[in-house]
Simulated assay, not measured.
Amino acid sequence: MIKQLTTDQLDALKELVNVGVGKSAGMLNEMIEFRIRLQVPNIKLLTMSELQTELGARLGEDQLASVQLAFSGSFAGTAQLVFPTESAATLVAVLTGEEPGSPDLDALKIGTLTEVGNIVINGVMGSISNMLTQPLHYEVPAYIEVPVYIEEDINNLVSNKKTQQNMDILLAQARFNVEELQVQGDIILFFGVGSFETLLTAIEDVG
């Protein structure tokens, strides 16, 4: 059964994520010639089955492009930046200057999204680590694509199969506003057993 978070806990989590995406947007803006605004309007705590329902309802029968990065330390799990493939292609086209549908776009997609995902995920996790003074260690980011509408494939978003059923999943909707374009993705944090409780305790300690 999913635990219930208080309003203060949700507000604190949203603030941590927003600080992180703010730093990430600043780094992305240094890489390109136009301004990216990143916002996180909503954040939820979900079970694995609820995550599938949530993503399926919003994205439909579509592929997901995902950059994932495992973390360990005071708490452990996997952080991901996830896009529907159409949104991913749009973002890559804008960032690289390639026309949508260009054959060069596919070749650039994995590298570009991995770099964007690495910046955003490190911004978010770095914010959590620094603001809560909880050291974390990171693995090399990996790029994967899975269908959103098959539960087994949603499960494949998590590399640690042993703890899937007991994971706490934090879903933060992320909006990338690039010039006139709005690209929506999701920041998903999968916490291993006991890790989310450690996170909440750390939030309370600095509150």
Rank of each mutant, 00 (worst) to 15 (best):
I2E: 11
Q4Y: 04
L13I: 15
K14V: 09
V17N: 15
V17S: 15
N18D: 15
N18V: 14
G20A: 14
K23M: 08
K23I: 09
M27A: 15
L28P: 11
N29Q: 11
I32V: 15
E33I: 13
I36F: 06
R37W: 00
P41S: 00
P41I: 01
N42C: 02
N42W: 01
I43Q: 03
K44Q: 14
L46Q: 12
M48F: 14
L51T: 10
Q52P: 05
T53K: 14
L55N: 01
G56P: 00
A57R: 09
E61S: 02
A65D: 02
V67Y: 03
V67G: 03
Q68A: 06
Q68N: 09
F71V: 04
S72L: 01
A79T: 03
L81V: 15
V82W: 08
E86C: 02
A88V: 08
L91Y: 00
V94N: 07
S102P: 03
D104Q: 11
K109T: 14
G111C: 01
L113V: 08
T114E: 07
I119E: 04
I119H: 05
V120L: 13
V120R: 05
I121C: 06
N122V: 02
G123A: 09
M125I: 14
S129F: 05
N130A: 14
N130D: 15
N130Y: 06
M131E: 11
P135G: 02
H137C: 00
V140S: 01
P141S: 04
P141L: 04
A142I: 04
I144R: 01
E145A: 11
V148Q: 13
I150K: 14
E151Y: 15
E152V: 06
D153N: 15
V158N: 01
K161D: 05
K162C: 00
M167A: 09
M167I: 00
I169T: 06
A172T: 06
Q173I: 03
E180I: 10
E180Y: 09
Q182G: 11
D186H: 12
D186N: 13
L189V: 05
L189H: 02
F190M: 03
F196Y: 02
E197L: 03
E197S: 11
L199C: 06
L199Y: 06
L200E: 05
E204P: 07
D205E: 15
G207S: 15
